[in-house]
Design a binder for these strands. Sequence first.
RNA 1: GCCCCCAUCGUCUAGCCUGGUCUAGGACAUCGGUCUUUCAAGCCGGUAACGCGGGUUCAAAUCCCGCUGGGGGCGCCA
Length: 463
Amino acid sequence: MVITRFAPSPTGRFHVGVARTALFSYLWAKKNNGKFILRIDDTDKERSKIEYEEEIKAGLNFLGIKYDEIFRQSDRIARYKEVTDWLIENGFAYRCYCSPEELERYRQEALRKKMNPRYPGTCRSRKDFPKDKPFAVRFKVPDDIFTVEFEDLVMKKISVNSEEIEDFTLLRSNGLPTYNLASVVDDVDFKITHVIRGADHISNTPKQILLFRILGHIPQFAHLPLILPDEGEGKLSKRVESINSIYILDLKKDGFLTEAVTNHLARLGWAYKDKEIFSMDELIQLFDISEVNRTPARYNFKKLYWLNSEWIKILPDDILIQRLSEFLDFSDTTAEKIKQILPAVKVRVNSLLEMANMIKPLLSVETYDEEGVKEFFNETGKYILEELKEKLATLSDGENSRLEFDKILSELSQKYNVKKVFVAQVLRLALYGKLVSPPLYEVIRVLGIDETVKRIEKVIQRI
RNA sequence: GCCCCCAUCGUCUAGCCUGGUCUAGGACAUCGGUCUUUCAAGCCGGUAACGCGGGUUCAAAUCCCGCUGGGGGCGCCA
């Protein structure tokens, strides 16, 4: 059985790069009817924060990524210690008494001399074990020169000379394991078949393979090219009402649909022919880890934005309204009204937030656009509204009413010698409070004749 | 400094493995046009790429080498 895991460290916010790794890992497991495990890599107790862990879980939940199992590395400290002891006993690891300060000095020195800043192996063959001195435990890389080679599912063949691998730390002097140890032990214990992670881990892999070999289980590796940031542009922030767009929970807040986000994430470094729109089910069906690109991809916010508008058009009205309730308060009866105008709204918005903002004036008009008031709420506007009030009151319900409505606008336009657009805008502003709205006819239908007349009257009063 | 990886329109990519069908396809963005009571959406059309240099071959985006460029790593961080 395929078992994958997503192993974030709760040391920062949950962003699109990390989320993409989670997605691919999830997709690969589900595609193979396997298991997907969430592992919280919280062995760095200084930097790990519970709120980040919560954000990861909330983010995964939003993305529709469900894990079959979850655990924290901080709950398995004893196990890592046990493995470390065993490694020392069997000569695969040794105690290192070098102080962090000493090592840091050595590192700086080496860097200054433009030499390799690698551990010099000071304690490698040390025979004394001072009882009072703290020690870390290091892996003992075999002396003979050999090549560590592995077939990466994404990067293909990668090979590293053993001379390039230093005696890396397994256990810190505070008794906590390092990433390399904990990760390998867990991958072995949980029988992980595919380690899918960011390309920033490529250089850790040869080290880990050495450990895997000793522990007797070597998973397959798939290193995903990193996602580069989108060079943001000012224009967008105006429309989307948020610039901070790389964090999953912010996207949620800004009204992005999970379908759109997973869709875009999946297309970063992966493609299936010319297909652009993928549902989660399609992704599970079509995704192939070995077809992932090896080139870093740039996060494309505008494309995500477009995808969001596409998904708004695809999703059934009922689901949309349900999601909309996170952004707008409305009753069940109002929901029916919203449903009525949804087709007209859908094609005009790119996010749930925009959708909520477009529907709000339909529920009640609080203010009128200032520019519009100056331009349309004048003498002529008043006469037109008064006529409109009478004529719209008689608007029928039949199939022809749309034409009737259009005729009313045309006639008024002629009578008052103004452009038809003037008549329309006067009415729009009166009914909706803004100069941009869904089509007027739809607005009137949703408001109902009574409310339409009431809103017109209210405006006539104020002119 | 050393190590690893990568290289097609501005961006995401198809094609590359199994050379010819590629005068390089799609999508986002962008620019025109069309429709129109606003704003959108839709429809039609345009601009735009195989990083450079050597090979191999009848033939290279596709195979090989070098250069350049980009990314990642070199912690008692993950």
